[in-house]
Amino acid sequence: MSKRAFNFCAGPAALPEPVLQRAQAELLDWKGKGLSVMEMSHRSDEFVSIAETAERDLRDLLSIPANYKVLFLQGGASQQFAQIPLNLLPEGGKADYIDTGIWSKKAIDEARRYGGVNVAASAKPSDYFCIPAQREWQLSSGAAYVHYTPNETIGGLEFGWIPEVGEVPLVADMSSTILSRPLDVSRFGLIYAGAQKNIGPSGLVVVIVREDLLGKARGGCPTMLDYKVAADNGSMYNTPPTFAWYLAGLIFQWMKEQGGVEKMGEINERKQRKLYQAIDASALYNNPIAKADRSWMNVPFRLADERLDTPFLAGAEARGLLNLKGHRSVGGMRASIYNAVDEGAVDALLAYMAEFEKEHG
Rank of each mutant, 00 (worst) to 15 (best):
N7M: 00
A231H: 04
S336D: 03
G249R: 00
L284F: 10
A95F: 09
E266M: 03
P65S: 05
P311Y: 06
E164V: 11
E164S: 14
K228L: 09
V168G: 04
Q258H: 03
K105W: 13
R59E: 00
R43I: 05
A217I: 02
E91G: 03
Y285W: 04
A304F: 03
N268Y: 02
A121R: 09
S78V: 13
A290Q: 12
D293L: 09
H327W: 05
E26Y: 09
L225M: 12
F252D: 05
P169M: 04
N286W: 12
S126T: 15
Q74S: 12
A354Q: 12
Y97V: 11
A144E: 08
S44V: 02
L190D: 05
Y276L: 06
D342V: 04
R328P: 07
L89Y: 07
E317T: 11
Q83V: 09
K31E: 14
I289Y: 08
A248M: 13
A193R: 08
L20K: 14
A244K: 11
N67Q: 05
G249C: 04
Y338D: 10
Q134P: 09
V165K: 06
R22D: 11
A230Q: 15
I64K: 03
V48L: 15
Y114K: 07
R56W: 07
A23H: 06
V229T: 14
R22S: 07
Q83F: 10
L20Q: 13
A314K: 15
G315M: 05
L204H: 02
Y192G: 02
N286S: 15
R112I: 00
D280W: 11
G260R: 10
S186H: 02
I337H: 08
N286F: 12
N323Y: 12
P18V: 02
S175F: 01
V168H: 03
N339E: 11
V165Y: 07
G194L: 01
S175D: 15
A304V: 12
G249D: 03
G332N: 15
I289R: 10
R181V: 00
I64E: 00
L139T: 13
F72Q: 14
E211M: 10
K291M: 11
E158W: 01
P12M: 08
A13I: 00
L58A: 01
I279D: 02
E359T: 12
L20E: 13
G315S: 07
A230W: 03
T177Q: 06
V299G: 02
T100Y: 02
A144N: 04
R181L: 00
G265E: 08
G200M: 00
L183T: 04
M38H: 08
P201A: 13
A314F: 08
N198C: 07
A95K: 05
A123M: 07
I199Q: 01
W161H: 13
R181W: 00
A5C: 07
R181C: 01
A143P: 07
L275S: 07
S295I: 08
R59H: 00
I131A: 07
R294A: 10
G320L: 05
G115T: 04
E52Q: 14
E39D: 15
A230E: 14
A292D: 05
A120C: 06
G34K: 10
R112C: 02
G93N: 08
E136C: 01
V171N: 01
S186N: 10
D96L: 10
T242S: 12
Y246M: 02
K291W: 08
P90M: 06
T177Y: 03
A54G: 12
A318V: 03
C9P: 02
